[in-house]
């Protein structure tokens, strides 16, 4: 795991700020690390040099590397309170489709990466094309909702 500094750190912060409108002051509070195909987030820790712990992973995977990045569901949920942009508000039917693993029609005119929101809850990420929004919520989190 490598802690990102300077330009690389700024690239992560700028990306999250411009895509979701998360304030830079908020993003500046954290440490970002790179390992494998992911960018990870953790808090600023004074007691220990995290690189010296030789851990396999540190913190939460918030982005995947993909020219430049691809947001993760865990990442957008972590910043849930601060997300202002690229949000689509889904209805009951769309929520059910998403949780079952299906894509939904793009009735929002959205483009690029978006966050699915349902009554204020951040459900996960998707990628919009002209016709549909591709469901990027991890399979392990697409449990069907119980019939009440």
């Amino acid at each position: 795991m490598k802690v990102l500094h300077g330009r690389k750190r700024k690239a992560v912060i700028d990306y999250l700020n411009s895509l979701f409108g998360i304030p830079v002051e908020e993003l500046e509070k954290y440490v970002y690390l790179a390992s494998g195909e992911k960018i990870w987030i953790t808090g600023k820790i004074e007691k220990v040099d995290i690189q010296r712990l030789e851990a396999e992973t540190v913190g939460l995977g918030i982005l995947r590397r993909a020219n430049p990045f691809k947001p993760t569901t865990a990442g957008v949920q972590f910043f849930a309170k601060f997300i202002k942009k690229s949000v689509v508000d889904v209805n009951d039917e769309e929520l059910e489709r998403l949780l079952k693993g299906f894509d939904i029609p793009n009735r929002f005119g959205a483009s690029g990466y978006v966050v699915f929101r349902y009554r204020g809850d951040i459900i996960g990420v998707g990628r919009a094309s002209v016709e549909k929004i591709k469901n990027m919520i991890p399979k392990s989190r697409r449990i069907p909702l119980g019939k009440e």
Binding site: A55, E56, T57, V58, A74
Partner: peptide, 14 residues
């Protein structure tokens, strides 16, 4: 998986 789902950022895994 559990840490990710809970939104935990202060755990390092070895």
């Amino acid at each position: 998986f559990n840490m990710e789902k809970l939104g935990v950022i202060n755990v390092a895994v070895i």
